[in-house]
Simulated assay, not measured.
Amino acid sequence: MSLKDQITEDMKSAMRAKEAAKLNTIRLITSAIKQKEVDERITVTDTQVLAIIEKMIKQRKDSITQFEAGNRQDLADIEKAELVVLTAYMPAGLSDAEINAEITAAVSASGALGPQDMGKVMAILKPKLAGRADLTAVSVLVKVALAPKV
C-alpha cells in the first residue's frame, strides 16, 4: 500500500472514530498532496509525499517556536498535536552512527577534498537521508567532516 493510500485509509478511520484533530491534520496532508498533483499534473510518489509531509513538519516546528515566543500556548498546543500526526507518517529516523557512516561513505564516493566539495556530498546524501534525518543537521556534520584538519 502506498503512503498516499495509507493516508486516505487513516482519514476514513479518523472519520469513523470521530477524531476531529487527527482528521483535520490528515485533511491538510491530503490537500497538500492534491495541490502538488494539480499544480504539476503528476501522480505523487511516496518520496514526494514524504517531502510534502517533511515540509509540513518544518512549518509546524517554526510555528510552535513563534507561538511560544508570543505567549500563545493554546496555538502552540494545536501545532504540537498536528506535529504528532505528521511525524507518524515519517520513516524511522537514523541514529547518529548511521548518519556518520552515510556521510563517510558519501565523502569517499564523491572524492571530496574540502569544504568546496560540500555540494557533491550533499547531492549524494539528500536522496538517501530525506525523511530519515534532519538535512540541516546533516549539512553541519558534512561541514565538520570536510573541514581542513589542523
Rank of each mutant, 00 (worst) to 15 (best):
V44Y: 05
S139T: 14
T87N: 14
L83S: 10
A20Q: 07
Q48V: 08
N100R: 07
A20D: 09
M56V: 07
S31A: 12
M1T: 09
A97P: 05
V38L: 12
K34A: 13
A106T: 03
V84H: 01
R16M: 10
A51C: 09
V121C: 04
V121N: 05
K126P: 02
K80P: 01
L86C: 11
T43C: 05
V84N: 01
I52Y: 03
I103R: 01
K149E: 11
A92W: 06
S110R: 01
A17P: 02
T25C: 15
R132V: 04
I53A: 02
T43G: 09
A133S: 13
N24V: 04
V121L: 07
A105I: 01
T87L: 11
E82W: 09
S139L: 08
K34N: 14
E19S: 10
V140K: 11
P127M: 06
E9A: 10
L141W: 00
T47H: 11
T8C: 09
I29Q: 07
D39T: 10
A32R: 15
V84M: 05
V140N: 11
V38G: 03
E9L: 14
G114Y: 11
E82A: 06
L125K: 08
S63D: 14
D5P: 01
E102W: 02
R132L: 04
K18W: 07
